[in-house]
Design a protein around this nucleic acid. Structure first.
Lengths: 149, 149
DNA sequence: TTCCTTGCAAACGATTTGCATTGGA
DNA sequence: TCCAATGCAAATCGTTTGCAAGGAA
């Protein structure tokens, strides 16, 4: 794939932000770093914990800026809570699986053949509805390995 | 399939609620009726419009009761707004496609072969993560027929 | 100096809840 | 009669915003 490694991630983001005359400040860099190592989308509360010393309002403001710049993507989990992850061009294409017990959300990447099967299904859905499909997301839920008792 | 038709819908719901000593009142029946004819998940605001004369607080309370009884399912759209639809055993298994322009959410039902392909992909995802998959949802987004200019 | 960014506090909007009242079986 | 259901108002909670102060180019 051509998603930037951890070392290039910040450069890529900095360049993207520069085009919008937006500064890549310490707080923003810390958010991107946290999302770069997380194994799934993080809520604002998660990030507030991971990125110490940044007030919630500033955190939300940075998240908005990064979202609008296309650096990250905003999702909503089963409870409607906002969760953030790196945009696809930075973090790669993947799907999500949620544990109904503990609420954890984990990234799942598909193999070529699997994504190909999925593409066929999506094509059929687009044809049937007359939509021009722009994006897709396959969300699974179940019991994670550590939660099945 | 064996999903109840419009005439049997209310009987099925009434029986389900009776098991929990919950009454199937006029307001609740109106909600179920509205969801039964809607072509996609409806927000509380939508339902407040569709079900005239019911205050929002009562509406939310009914939605909670119906949700807990397994009569309906609560989703969240791209903006994090709660949207409600009949549970799968009442409304049938389907997926969603959202228009990025107008925000409409539409149900899409898959053909047997398509759902079979999807099942293979889901199986692979479950195997890879070690989850016991309980449910899945394929969400598409794109431009709906009337929104592409 | 010029703007973007930050922090705090106040505002917002969707959803929930306390409490007294109503109504169905 | 009894307990669930309702309506209103007030409370919650995640998220956004106004405004004045701070900071990088």
């Amino acid at each position: 794939m051509d998603t930037p490694g951890p070392s290039d991630l910040h450069d890529a983001v900095r360049r993207r932000l520069a085009e919008d005359d937006v500064r890549y400040t310490g707080g923003r860099k810390a958010i991107v770093a946290a999302l770069g190592t997380a194994g799934g989308p993080q809520s604002a509360a998660d990030l507030h914990r991971l990125v110490a010393g940044v007030p919630l309002s500033s955190l939300y403001r940075s998240l908005t800026v990064l979202d609008e710049a296309g650096v990250l993507k905003r999702n909503h989990d089963a409870d409607g809570l906002a969760r953030f992850e790196l945009a696809e061009w930075l973090g790669g294409h993947h799907h999500h699986i949620t544990c109904v017990e503990c609420g954890a959300v984990e990234d799942v990447r598909l193999e070529g053949e699997e994504e190909r099967l999925l593409a066929a299904v999506i094509q059929a859905m687009g044809d049937r509805t007359g939509y021009i499909v722009r994006d897709h997301e396959l969300e699974l839920e179940g019991a994670c390995p550590s939660c099945r008792s």
